[in-house]
């Protein structure tokens, strides 16, 4: 029954039900390995988090603003972003101009072939 529900892609197959079974087995193995852990480990015994030598901030004071989250990525692609973001100028007539521009390019391509 489950094998009849396999999605064929021409190059591969995908069966979510089998995937779920495999996932369940993997979780089971994980839990099994976890059970080897020391049972006498209690909460509070763990070391404090190391934050570059700074004191751990109080609970509730440690929000990381979303715009800082991918700073590394956006900084690495700065050249790209500096070109693309200004294109989103927000001016209504620019938007119209872009559409007409694409249309003009398509006219040239279609009428030339």
């Amino acid at each position: 029954m489950t094998f009849a529900w396999t999605l064929e892609t021409g190059s591969g197959t995908w069966n979510p039900l089998l995937w779920l079974v495999a996932f369940g087995v993997a979780v089971g193995i994980g839990l099994y390995i976890r059970s080897f852990g020391r049972a006498d480990n209690r909460e509070g015994d763990a070391l404090k988090p190391f934050i570059s030598g700074n004191e751990e901030p109080e609970d509730g004071a440690s929000h990381l603003p979303a715009s800082n989250l991918y700073w590394g990525f956006t900084d690495a692609l700065k050249a790209y972003y500096q070109k693309v973001v200004p294109l989103h100028s927000g001016i209504p007539t620019d938007y119209v101009a872009w559409m007409l521009g694409v249309m003009a390019v398509m006219f040239i391509i279609v009428l030339a072939t």
């Binding site: 973001v85 989103h88 100028s89 927000g90 001016i91 209504p92 007539t93």
Partner: peptide, 10 residues
């Protein structure tokens, strides 16, 4: 002025 109607951008 359409060039100033751009609070939404980026």
């Amino acid at each position: 002025d359409v060039h100033k109607i751009k609070k939404l951008k980026g």
